[in-house]
């Protein structure tokens, strides 16, 4: 069972994240960069499925050169190889364009299952899995908190607001996972050393047979027309409970018409 895991490098939430003044894109140089956290769960699930059914795990990441660090970390966790889609023309691509590029790369590599995180911490669209399923004409098995497959049929628990659905499909399929699904492993020292020698194939848009004019900021179907930092919240009232803390809180709620 050959698996591709889509992994994105994102700015660290803990660091100050900024947009570039010139074009309103995420400033990917400003903040420390990390593996999108949910993608670690996707990698782990890929490794478990490949471990059980045999087959390889390939990491697919689209991003600037710096995303190479993220790819090495994914390889250190145990993935076999990686494809890095890297092209200056990709700068500023929105979700729709990104999904077209990733779909083209996925088709070239070939797979039984694609696994994504259910959301990235910077874009937070949560739309990539659905877009890829639509583009590739494959079953959409997103927001999985449990995966079960015999290598031919696959079923998941799809987490929802009300609880969960069980969903069934035939492979190949596109999956996305939530953090409840597993416990991602830490790269071992051996894993980190081995990762240095694992094959990483860099692909440009030309390699994918895509026209650079169809990607990037200018070709995206959405545009940022302006942005501003939100004014900080006004400082509120903080009181120390000396026996009547709950009463004071109720008074506040009543004054604001919540009760």
């Amino acid at each position: 069972m050959d698996i591709i895991v889509c992994v994105k490098q994102v700015p660290d939430t803990g660091a100050e994240r900024r947009l570039r003044r010139e074009d309103g894109t995420v400033d990917r140089d400003a903040a420390a960069a990390v593996v999108n956290e949910l993608d670690e769960f996707a990698i782990e699930e890929g490794l478990r499925l490949a471990g059980k059914h045999g087959g390889t795990v390939t990491i697919l990441s689209m991003g600037p050169e710096r995303a190479g660090e993220t790819i090495r970390k994914a390889l250190a966790m145990g993935a076999d190889r990686a494809v890095h889609v890297c092209d200056p023309a990709l700068h500023g691509s929105d979700a729709l364009v990104s999904s077209a590029v990733l779909a083209a790369a996925l088709s070239r590599i070939g797979f039984d299952a694609v696994i994504l995180g259910s959301e990235s911490t910077d874009a937070r669209t949560g739309m990539l899995a659905a877009m890829l399923a639509e583009r590739l004409g494959l079953p959409q098995l997103s927001f999985a908190s449990l995966v079960d497959t015999d290598g031919e049929r696959i079923s998941i628990r799809r987490l929802a607001d009300y609880g969960y659905d069980t969903v069934e499909a035939r492979l190949p399929a596109v999956l996305s996972v939530v953090e409840k699904i597993n416990e991602p492993r830490y790269p071992s020292f051996k894993g980190i050393m081995a990762a240095k020698k694992k094959p990483v194939q860099t692909m440009s848009l030309a390699d994918l047979g895509l026209d650079p004019a169809m990607t990037g900021l200018a070709a995206s179907a959405t545009e940022v027309t302006g942005f501003a930092s939100r004014p900080p919240r006004q400082a509120g009232t903080v009181v120390t409970d000396e026996g009547a803390g709950g009463i004071g809180a109720a008074e506040f709620l009543a004054a604001r018409m919540f009760i």
Binding site: G236, D241, G246
Partner: peptide, 28 residues
């Protein structure tokens, strides 16, 4: 979290919350 608070109570939740519940009930 207090940096975001419009109203904050520094106290043990097991004291404050039951009292708050009681006071909301009394008022309503």
């Amino acid at each position: 979290i207090f940096e975001l608070a419009d109203y904050g109570v520094v106290g043990d939740l097991f004291d404050v919350v039951p009292q708050l519940i009681g006071e909301i009930r009394r008022r309503t």
